[in-house]
Design a protein around this nucleic acid. Structure first.
Length: 794
RNA sequence: GCCGAAGUGGCGGAACUGGCAGACGCGCCGGACUCAAAAUCCGGUGGCCUUCGGGCCGUGUGGGUUCGAUUCCCACCUUCGGCACCA
């Protein structure tokens, strides 16, 4: 009599066992002692504990990581799989504001519930490595690293235009402004001039375009393309034009030096300093109005506007006088804020020339060769550009340069819930680091942490007023906190050595585990978190703190789990957690179902409708395995049709998970195996098939698998070796020969694999059905694909 | 405009290296069990035609390469993502 499948009892039981056994805790290697060569660092992006529950997107992500972890572990890999909390930052703080509580309270409660949900889903996580960004033991080292960046001139303060979110009342990074709006709250951002801390990401602009990955490393093309677009490297030349009336030089940046002879006028951005210092009253007036408009608005204008400044620039290549205009289609923050205008070969210059009836000179013909370009005539455009730049360079009037779209990362935030910036402002000594032995600078508990436009910490006098560490005089702390992406730029390093209180991490253990073998997370972090983390690792490598230059060897982006067509997220309020389905059917069903919904890298609309199919499957597994345990002889027969199917399934599941990183097709393969097994539970090889099925299901549904493993008389499946396909069983004695006539299938039948090509053709010709198509004649041509088909061409 | 990804039954999707299109599941249809229902089990399920043997069509569109194309090449359409008055 088969007992009922009671997922809740089984799941609670095995989760207790794993915890007592410390089944998924993994020690670090010790210097001098032998280390396992086969190591794997499995990492998924850590969650913001901003909501009171995980959503199905998290469930997808972490279950994928879990399957990978189990299969690797059982295949003999040394696998570390940690977890932590992105506890600082806007999402967490805004959640606390909504609830009217202190962020620490809200966040720590959310962490509790999310951790409980994770444990309830049975994920194999090494909880002893857990970190949270808001713990002083963590942010002490965030502060220490920040000071290192400053010491290495990769972090600095300057005044400049920043993106101000009027709703969140703080500066936000370029990377998190989407279509001119705050990525978090959707409010339109304003430009403000402020003095801020910046990370010098541009110092690594070129290197961030290269992916120096270890063997087996892989980043999706689209992620690289997104980062490439964001960095926006553009090769060109800087060329000096002399202002005829004043003799001073104005530099332009161009990617089309080949069109230099086609320049007919010259344009400055409204913010260009020459405009304010020299231009006519009318031009200055225009510049003041035009420059104040945001870039998006300037771009939206259909007709070009501009004003002549009254000055002329001399084209260094032919001495031509070009009128200098000021126009808002030229931007101050790209290139030099000045352009040579070539209306014949640049669409925008063309529009401008038309609007103000300026002349046009064609300098590239239909064959892509230079014309009207003096001694450069006849050169192909690309060569012409090089030759012209070389000629200018010889005269000191130009040089080849590279420009980037990437800007340095602004990291100061005028909010409370973040890592305090460990610097002190002293009137006499300037900006002074807090001495290392005084770290961490503890985030004080203040009553009123609400954003007011001024940093909340500025109001806490006890916090703000300190003695200068250098001169001992009265000084003030930096009232800002750090962007939460500073925390997440190095958390994956801290996991490896999370209890270290002498250093952020020990190089030996970090060099052992990293780069992260497989990182799983959203593609939306391509230009932010992923880029920042790569920047951090390159810098730390340059300082000798670690021995690699890329943090993540393999990158995988899961698709969005959507509800009502949009991505599940706290801010959009369309969140569906795992609890309802877990309550109804158990964790194993949730895990299988979210992975069975479709390819993990594609978006999927959440609906609990199809979960029935998975529940049916689990009940079927339960019943069939019990039946086999009762009826099938336990004599270890590993041959026969079921054994063959089992071996094929081993090969498919293993290849899909380890090589193809595909998680839904293994479930289909297991269903096929179960379908065959369910009709023959008393076959001699049924027991082997059932054992294989249970063993292969374990990464997906570890609880029921563990239970059924004991039903089959075994123990400790979580550490049992991953099954290996018996190659001899994969070799077939017969195969189904497909016979085509003119590429169309006309017959198919089983034949012996040992048949030669000639014998296959002979067998194919005996087929009645094929003969009727051959019409008694000889085929013009016969194609034989060994072990597959014969094709007659008539 | 530039860069990148993707288009397959009613639905989610499979087919990895050019070789049987639609695995597996959902849904639907029929049957068994039942007083009945649920659950479970068995069978069917791309479209059109059929003398019930089978035939023709079919993977966004149009071409091409090939004995053979969902797969490779060219052009185009659509959708999604990134960048964008970026010189």
């Amino acid at each position: 009599m088969t007992p009922r499948y009671e997922p809740h009892e089984i799941e609670a039981k095995w989760q207790r066992v794993w915890e007592d056994e410390r089944a998924f805790n993994v020690p670090n290697p010790v210097p001098g002692a032998p280390t396992a060569a086969n190591h794997w660092y499995q990492l998924e992006m850590l969650p913001y504990p901003s909501g009171p529950s995980l959503h199905m997107g998290h469930v997808l992500n972490y279950t994928m990581g879990d399957v990978q972890t189990h299969v690797r572990r059982r295949s003999g890999w040394h696998v570390v799989r940690p977890m932590g909390w992105d506890a600082f930052g806007l999402p967490a703080e805004n959640a606390a504001i909504r609830e009217g509580r202190h962020p620490r309270e809200t966040i720590e409660r959310n962490i509790e519930t999310m951790r409980a949900q994770m444990k309830r889903l049975g994920w194999a996580i090494d909880w002893e490595r857990e970190v949270a960004a808001h713990q002083p033991t963590f942010y002490r080292w965030t502060q220490w690293l920040f000071q290192q960046f400053v010491a290495h001139d990769l972090c600095y303060r300057r005044e400049g235009p920043v993106n101000w979110c009027p709703n969140d009342r703080t500066v936000i990074a370029n990377e998190y402004v989407v279509d001119g709006r705050c990525e978090r709250c959707g409010a339109e951002v304003e430009l403000r001039n402020m003095t801020q801390w910046y990370m010098r990401t541009t110092a690594y602009a070129d290197e961030l375009l290269e992916y120096d990955l270890p063997e087996g490393g892989f980043w999706p093309e689209r992620t690289k393309a997104i980062q490439r677009n964001w960095i926006g490297r553009s090769e060109g030349a800087e060329i000096l034009f002399q202002v005829e009336e004043t003799g001073e030089d104005l530099a332009v940046f161009t990617t089309r030096a080949d069109t230099l002879f086609g320049a007919t006028f010259f344009v400055l951005a409204p913010e260009h300093p020459f405009v304010e210092s020299h231009a006519s009253d009318e031009a200055r007036e225009y510049a003041r109005h035009a420059g104040a408009r945001p870039v998006e608005e300037r771009a939206a204008g259909t007709t070009k506007t501009g004003v002549f400044t009254g000055f002329h620039a001399v084209n260094p290549v032919n001495g031509e006088r070009l009128p200098i205009w000021v126009a808002d289609y030229v931007l101050m923050d790209y290139g030099t804020g000045a352009i040579m205008a070539v209306p014949a070969h640049d669409e925008r210059d063309g529009e401008f020339a038309e609007a103000f009836t300026l002349p046009t000179t064609v300098v590239i013909d239909e064959d892509g060769k230079l014309v009207n370009s003096g001694r450069f005539d006849g050169l192909p455009a690309a060569e012409g550009a090089q030759a012209i730049v070389a000629a200018l360079e010889a005269e000191g009037r130009g040089k080849a340069t590279v420009h980037y779209r990437l800007r340095d990362w602004s990291v100061s935030r005028q909010r409370y819930w973040g890592c305090p910036i460990p610097f002190i402002h002293c009137e006499r000594c300037g900006v002074v680091p807090v001495p290392e032995d005084q770290l961490p600078v503890i985030l004080p508990d203040i009553e009123d942490y609400a954003p007011k436009g001024k940093p909340p910490l500025a109001q806490d006098e006890e916090y703000m007023n300190v003695d200068c560490p250098q001169c001992g005089g009265a000084a003030q702390r930096d009232p800002d906190t750090m962007d939460t992406f500073v925390d997440s730029s190095w958390y994956f390093l801290r996991y490896i050595d999370s209890h270290n209180d002498e250093a952020p991490f020990d190089r030996f253990v970090v060099d052992y585990w990293l780069p992260v073998s497989q990182y799983i997370g959203g593609v939306d972090h391509s230009t932010g978190h992923l880029l920042y983390s790569r920047f951090f690792v390159k810098a730390l490598n340059d300082w000798g703190m670690l021995g690699f230059r890329e943090p993540f060897a393999r990158m995988f982006h899961q698709g969005w789990v959507t509800l009502g067509g949009t991505k599940m997220s706290k801010t959009k309020g369309n969140v569906e957690g795992p609890d309802a389905v877990t309550d109804a059917y158990g964790a194993d069903a949730v895990r299988l179902y979210i992975l069975f919904m479709g390819p993990a890298d594609q978006d999927m609309e959440w609906t609990p409708d199809g979960v029935e199919g998975i529940v049916r499957f689990l009940r079927r597994v339960w019943r069939v395995v019990h039946e086999v345990a009762e009826r099938s002889p336990n004599d270890g027969v590993r041959e026969g049709p079921l054994a063959r199917k089992a071996n094929e399934t081993i090969a498919r599941v293993t290849d899909d998970v380890l090589r193809r990183f595909q998680f839904h097709t293994p479930i289909a393969a297991l269903m096929e195996l179960l379908n065959e097994l369910s009709g023959a539970t008393d076959a001699p090889d049924a027991r082997f098939a059932a054992e294989t099925a249970v063993s292969l299901i374990q990464p997906y549904a570890p609880h029921v698998a563990e239970e059924l493993w004991t039903v089959l008389g075994h123990e400790r499946l979580w550490e049992a070796p991953w099954p290996e396909a018996d190659e001899s069983q994969l070799v077939r004695e017969t195969f189904e020969l497909v016979v085509q006539v003119n590429g169309k299938v006309r017959d198919r039948f089983e034949v012996d694999v040992s048949l030669s090509e000639e014998e296959l053709v002979a067998r194919a010709r005996t087929s009645e059905r094929v003969r009727s198509y051959l019409d008694g004649g000889e085929p013009r041509k016969t194609i034989v694909v060994p072990k597959k088909l014969v094709n007659f061409v008539v």
